[in-house]
Structures are given as structure tokens and as C-alpha cells.
Design a protein around this nucleic acid. Structure first.
Length: 292
DNA sequence: ACGATTATTGCGTTCTT
DNA sequence: AAGAAAACAATAATCGT
């Protein structure tokens, strides 16, 4: 999905400036007013696999927080004024209608979740392969019936996060939550369930997974990044990072490497991109200093 | 619920200009 | 000497189990 800045034809209600949509947010150029929080994808609809559901229904009330039975429902009422053939006919209709309704609801959920996953992977700019994996995770979740009572948005976010983890292209949970419609708690609940039921092959996060991303955000030279990678490898071999925040470890190694190469950055700056405080960053920085 | 890690805040110290 | 950055300590919050 392209992450582009596009001009909108409408003008900002506050100052008549030109709103732009960027990274999923529509923001006014002039006054910074956020007009639309969510990314609307006008691209061709994307379906995951060669599934045979060709006649998807896409009408009806918009899904809210998807508890199991919210959304549209049409019941065929029971009447005492019928009997005999007619009564049996309507019983059959009711049965079939309910079956059909459940199947379309399931499909609608899937379409909704896929769109959300698609939006998230776009905002977080992760590769298409991971996006597809996230969708396949969601289908597995549906098949295992672990969505019941939990929010769709949470599962969408959790699937994206999980797909990143298994592909070793980690984003922090915070990063995903920030882009997601789900709350942190919903995402957490969904991710826990996903992990528990599907037994995902997820090990501890290697701090090195964050290095290249942080390094490029700080515009550090490749020498520094490579050096930081060595530091991280050394620390993990010594087992010096039990239980530490991997994001903080990455930041510490990056900072240490930058200092060594005489690059001018502050702990505060490095901490900002890694979303940790200078204090936590310092902990591994000191460990690195002890190494040599 | 508990232990460890991390965030936050405040404050004296060190380094730079 | 002044200002910024790093260091340190205490307490609150959070996380993993």
C-alpha cells in the first residue's frame, strides 16, 4: 500500500487551509487540525486466498465493537395463527435464515478485520508478506473459534503484531496500539488468546530487530549501526539482558556505538525514537562500557 | 499477588562554550 | 560563569510470572 500524501478537495473548517492525508491521518496543513483519524483505502479490494466466497454481502449497518451479536439481525417471527404446512414452512425458513445470517456475519467480520489489518500494515509500513500472514492468522483464529466475546479490532491489531514477531521484524506493542483502533487492553487480550490457542512460534525479542529502524530514524551512519549490532550480540551472549526491555537495549547499544564513533546524539534523542527514557537506555549503555 | 524492571521527578555534578 | 547533558536516588507505575 502506498503511503502518500494526497490533497483533498475539501477545505479545513477551521482555517480554510488544505487538508492532507498522511500515514492514515488527515491533517490540515495550516492549523494542524486532525480531520480524520483513520485511513480509508480506495484501492481494489484485497482478498486473502483463493477462497470460494464469491458472493460476499457488503450491506447493512456498520459493525460496532464486535461483540458476538451486535450488528444487524433480522428475525423471522413466530406466529400462532399458522398451522400445518404453513407453519412448518416458516420454521424451515427461520432455520435457513439463521444459518445464512451466521455465515454472512462471519464473512463480514473477516472482511472488516482484513481491511483493518491492511490499514495497520500500511501505516506501520511492514511488508506485504507479513500482512498476508496476519490475515492468515486471523482466519486461523476464526476457525479455532477464539474470537468469541473479544473485539475484532483487538484481533486485527494482535494479528499484525504477532505476524511481525514471527517474521522478526518487530514493532513494539505500543507502536501497533498507537496505530490501531483497538485499545491496549483489547489488543493484549486478543494477542494472549492467539498465542495460547495457536501456539505461535514466538521467542523473546532480539534487540537487534529494532536497530536498523531506529538507526535510520536517527540518521546514523551504517558504521554505527553495525557497531551497535556487535554490542547487542555481545550482550546477549553474556546473558546480560535478562528481562530487560529489548527496545531499551537496542537504544543503549545504538547510543554507545554513536559515542564511540563520535556522532553527536543525546540520550534523550535516542530514547525518544525507541520510546524509552534516558535512564533505561543508560542501564545497557553502562553494560556496554564495561565490556571493552 | 509478588518481584523485577521501568518511568518520573528532583537535584547535585560534569562538560562545553 | 552559564547552560546543557549525564548521573544518581527515591518513589510510583508497570510488567512478567
Amino acid at each position: 500500500m502506498p503511503i502518500t500524501s494526497t490533497e483533498s478537495t475539501a477545505t479545513c473548517p477551521e482555517c480554510d487551509g488544505r487538508p492532507r492525508t498522511h500515514n492514515g491521518e488527515t491533517i490540515c496543513d495550516e492549523c494542524g487540525l486532525v480531520l480524520d483519524e483513520y485511513y480509508i483505502d480506495h484501492g481494489p479490494e484485497w482478498r486473502s486466498f483463493n477462497d470460494d466466497t464469491t458472493n460476499s454481502k457488503r450491506t447493512g449497518a456498520p459493525l460496532t465493537r464486535s461483540r458476538h451479536d451486535r450488528g444487524l439481525s433480522t428475525e423471522i417471527g413466530r406466529s400462532t395463527r399458522m398451522n400445518g404446512r404453513k407453519r412448518r414452512l416458516f420454521a424451515r425458513l427461520r432455520r435457513q435464515h439463521n444459518r445464512a445470517r451466521i455465515s454472512t456475519k462471519r464473512e463480514r467480520n473477516q472482511v472488516y478485520a482484513f481491511n483493518e489489518i491492511r490499514r495497520l500494515t500500511g501505516v506501520l509500513s511492514v511488508p506485504d508478506q507479513i500482512r498476508d500472514h496476519a490475515c492468515s492468522l486471523f482466519r486461523s483464529a476464526q476457525n479455532e473459534d477464539i474470537l468469541r466475546g473479544r473485539s475484532l479490532e483487538g484481533f486485527a491489531a494482535a494479528c499484525v503484531y504477532a505476524a511481525c514477531r514471527v517474521a522478526s521484524v518487530s514493532r513494539t506493542q505500543k507502536e501497533v496500539t498507537a496505530a490501531a483502533k483497538a485499545t491496549a487492553a483489547e489488543q493484549q487480550a486478543a494477542y494472549d488468546a492467539l498465542n495460547r490457542e495457536l501456539k505461535l512460534p514466538i521467542g523473546p525479542i532480539n534487540p537487534a530487530e529494532y536497530l536498523s529502524r531506529y538507526a535510520s530514524e536517527l540518521e546514523l551512519p551504517t558504521d554505527v549501526e553495525r557497531c551497535a549490532r556487535e554490542y547487542a550480540a555481545g550482550l546477549s551472549q553474556d546473558g546480560a539482558l535478562g528481562g530487560r526491555n529489548p527496545s531499551g537495549v537496542a537504544a543503549g547499544c545504538l547510543y554507545a556505538a554513536a559515542i564511540k564513533y563520535g556522532v553527536d546524539v543525546t540520550q534523550k534523542e535516542v530514547g525518544a525514537v525507541a520510546d524509552v527514557t534516558p535512564v533505561t537506555l543508560r542501564a545497557t549503555y553502562h553494560d556496554v562500557c564495561k565490556e571493552d
